[in-house]
Nucleic acid binder design. Structure first.
Lengths: 211, 211
DNA sequence: CCCGCCATCCCCCAAAAGGATGACGACGGA
DNA sequence: TCCGTCGTCATCCTTTTGGGGGATGGCGGG
């Protein structure tokens, strides 16, 4: 059996590297991996997947301009039949990992993994397994226990302005509401995040990848 | 003429990619590039450079654990004879670019560049030119006009705690000083950064890569 | 139709943060 | 030695934030 793979990464260098690492990788053990195409953007990934029908799409999360890896994953999983999507990225922020999994990714690998680990991850994902880089698994489980608080859209909007260092008055002007409303949103944000100051709120929001 | 290159990147995949892109790259025009070694950490880069004596060291900025790309650059330039150092990274934060240049890097390329651009950058750097990814040049010039304000060590320390969302009282306790001292540091930080609130200070500090 | 969530707004009050200004010792370079 | 910078601390005063309430209208699900 040979597994067909589509590479999605906005960096030509990384695509070459994956090609070198995977395509030659007809290891003694396990199925052979054959790269059938490359995409530099999420949009390109979707159209190529529709025509090439790869078994696995290996997708970066950060894709420069255009839709990101999570949106791409969702779009790919909406195809019929949906390919197996494996995320391969440098970052390991909780919100992104959870987001990718919710969007239907079957795996989440880190780029600093050894080539064999990536190869093995693709094989396992193609076989129907759920595959996570070591260390991420426990994080995901913890994330399940302490689910990220759900902020409303408005609250996220306020949070973003907060992260830019805007004062309440400034936020109010930007959103065309009164300062009282902003303070109300902030109070909700604080309780949801379990903090008691704007700075700390921004900090945990950054940490969890909420913004 | 053939240019010898040492690759420094903590990601095996990226090293493979660069090897594929550069080593085969005996283009019709210009010198051939020959990769003589690879290093996964800054420390390894320094020892390998001492023995392999490459013409050019192509170095990532983020190197996982251990010393970062800027420190590595400085260490490399302290060797005799110093190699030409070219930074190749995904990030383009002002402080890092300026820092790399100050540390003695001859070039700063972005990973999303086309393979030929990277190849050409290495050739130009080896020839003694200063090479910057398009777009970065203007940024650097702007950075020269608006130099990053110099914060003292203590101020940076306060800034870090600020970024974690600590209150003045908390910062004071952490640094074993009074709150008055903290406020004094903050006032200095604010004027140097040209802001008027802790949140905004954190924001510009993050933007400029000050922290 | 009622209930819960959301966004909006209001008041009061205590705490924190910020601005202005000044001072003092240590240290290092001119 | 004198001057500048740094780190330390202080006081006074104003503004901003955060916490405690509560109130309104809209909108969607049971």
């Amino acid at each position: 059996m040979t597994i067909t793979v589509l590479l999605v990464d906005d960096h030509p260098v990384v695509r070459s590297g994956l090609r070198a690492v995977l395509d030659g990788g007809t290891a003694r053990t396990g199925d052979a991996v054959h790269i059938v195409g490359e995409a530099a953007t999420g949009e390109e990934a979707v159209t190529l997947t529709a025509t090439l029908r790869p078994d696995v799409v290996l997708c970066d999360l950060r894709l420069g301009a255009g839709i990101d890896g999570i949106q791409t994953t969702a779009a790919l999983r909406a195809l019929d039949p949906p390919p197996t999507v494996v995320i391969l990225t440098t970052f390991d922020r909780d919100a992104e990992i959870l987001g990718a999994i919710e969007a239907g990714a079957a795996g989440y690998l880190l780029k600093d993994a050894a080539p064999e680990a990536i190869l093995e991850g693709i094989r396992r994902a193609a076989a129907g397994d759920m595959v996570l880089s070591p260390g991420l698994a426990t994080r995901v489980l913890k994330g399940m226990r302490n689910p990220l608080p759900k902020l409303t859209e408005r609250e996220i909007e306020v949070l973003r302005l907060l992260a830019e260092g805007s004062a309440n008055k400034q936020i109010a002007r930007t959103l065309f509401v009164t300062e009282a409303t902003v303070k109300s949103h902030l109070a909700h944000i604080f309780t949801k995040l379990g903090v008691d100051s704007r700075s700390r709120a921004v900090h945990v929001a950054r940490e969890t990848g909420l913004i």
